[in-house]
Every structure is written in C-alpha cells, then in structure tokens.
C-alpha cells in the first residue's frame, strides 16, 4: 500500500503538526479561496511561495507531496483536451489541419492546473500533519455553532471519524482477502475479462460481508458502553488556541486580503 501517500498522516514533529486542527482547517479554507481568486501569474508566484513555505515548515519532503500529483495527471490532460476543444476566444495560437488552438484555451487550462496543484499541495499538507481524529475534532468544533439550527455536528463528526478510523482496517481486510484468494489461484493482475470479473467478485463479496459484520459489532460495542447520539459529552483532550494559531490565521487573512486587492487593482 505504498502508493496511498495522499491523505496519509506522517508522524513527525513540526510547527505545522503542532498547530490546532481548527487553525489548519480555517487557514486551508482561506487559502483555497485565495487560490481561486487571481488571474495574474505574479500573484500565483506569490501564492506558490506561500504554499511552499507552509510545506517547508511542515517538514514533509516535497517528494511525498509530488507523489500525490500522479493520479491527477490524467485529469489535467483531460481538462486540456476539453478546453482546447471548447474555448474559442483569445488570439489564434496554433493552426493545425483539423483544429485551431486559441490562447485562452491554453491559459485557462494552465490556471486550472496551477490552482489544482496548489490546492492539492495544501490539502495533503493538512492531512499529512493532522491525525484523522484531531481533524474530525476540529471539524466538530467548527460546525458546532450550527447546532443552534439543529445541525447534528457531533454525529456528523462521529460518522467521519468512524469512517476514517476504518479505512486502514478495511485496507488490511482487503489485503487479507486478496491474499486468501491469491492462495486459491485467483490472479488479480492478469487474465481474461471474465476471469478478472470473477477475481473482483471474489474480493467484493467477502469484503462486504466483513464490513457489515464489523458495523454490527461496532454498533453493539457503542451501545454497550452507553453511547447516546447527541448526549452532552466531555473530551479527554480539549482544543486550545495558542499564539502561533492566531498568527497563522492572521497571516492567512492577510494573504487573502492581498489577493483580493490584487484582483481589484492589478
């Protein structure tokens, strides 16, 4: 499972790791807004520097982050093709026998690509520096004002954290079932279409059966320990903002303001 780098927590210590999860979520939110505002390459250079310094502060190797790009290459090529086929504004850049390529098509794609790259870099930075449970705790806190309009913030957070908690378990389960079926002669890599289909069935059916079994067991275990959805509960770890957190949110706000101003005045 070495290829599952995107979204994996990397257990080291850094300034970013120590930030409050709420800070990271808020800052990410502000930064993503900032990333989608500008239409000027100089502003993107500025944003790239900001994003890279965050990555540098998190002490995550750039190589790790770049690995997250790989699955996106297909999407980017797809975007380019769609844009080239549909956008017909700007000046004519290239004239081929069957198709004309316009400048806006290329630049629009480049903007989208850069935005996506920056966004993925930041998001993987968040997931690499924050434990899944801290992340959901942060989400729960940020959503809790919505409780006034009867939004089940705690329940939603609990569902997210259960889902996150069981991703590694399900991956482990998948590996185990794959190994069992490989031992029975199933070939997951080669074979004809019908053999491949059989291979997938031999994986999916046991996986579902295990997942449901686990779900029932978990529900029983939670009930046995007196879990009541929506009940008032206390926490072992209470989130607290520190000076660095305020600084981080402030910097994000400044970046966003600068980007908005650049859009108005540049």
């Amino acid at each position: 499972m070495n290829n599952l780098v995107f979204g994996k927590y990397i257990p080291i210590d850094s300034t970013i790791h120590r930030l409050d999860p709420r800070t990271k979520i808020i800052s990410l939110f502000l930064m993503i807004i900032s990333i989608f505002i500008p239409k000027n390459w100089w502003v993107y250079l500025f944003l790239a520097i900001v994003v890279l310094s965050v990555v540098f502060l998190s002490r995550i190797r750039l190589g790790m982050i770049f690995k997250a790009f790989k699955p996106m290459i297909f999407m980017m090529v797809f975007l380019l093709v769609i844009n080239v086929l549909s956008v017909k504004t700007g000046y004519l850049l290239l004239h081929l026998s069957f198709i004309d390529i316009y400048s806006d098509a290329v630049f629009n794609t480049l903007f989208i690509v850069v935005r996506l790259l920056l966004m993925v870099m930041l998001t993987s930075c968040l997931t690499a520096t924050t434990k899944p449970l801290d992340l959901t705790l942060g989400i729960e806190h940020l959503l809790s004002p919505l409780k006034i309009i009867h939004f089940p913030a705690h329940e939603v957070a609990m569902m997210i954290s259960i889902a996150l908690r069981f991703i590694p378990t399900i991956i482990e389960e998948t590996m185990r079932i794959m190994n069992s079926q490989k031992s029975r002669g199933v070939d997951f890599e080669e074979g004809s279409m019908s053999e491949k289909l059989m291979a997938i069935v031999s994986l999916i059916v046991p996986l579902f059966s295990v997942a449901f079994e686990r779900a029932y067991e978990l529900a029983d275990a939670m009930e046995a320990r007196g879990y009541i959805p929506g009940a008032e509960r206390t926490r072992l770890r209470v989130l607290k903002y520190h000076f660095v957190d305020y600084l981080f949110i402030f910097v994000s706000l400044v970046v966003m303001t600068l980007v908005i101003l650049s859009r108005i005045y540049l």
Partner: peptide
C-alpha cells in the same frame, strides 16, 4: 490457510 480463513468464502 489463513488465520480466520472464513473471510475468503464468497
């Protein structure tokens, strides 16, 4: 034969 081999049944 794996530990908890019953998970291979489908």
């Amino acid at each position: 034969v794996f530990q908890f081999a019953e998970y291979q049944l489908f």
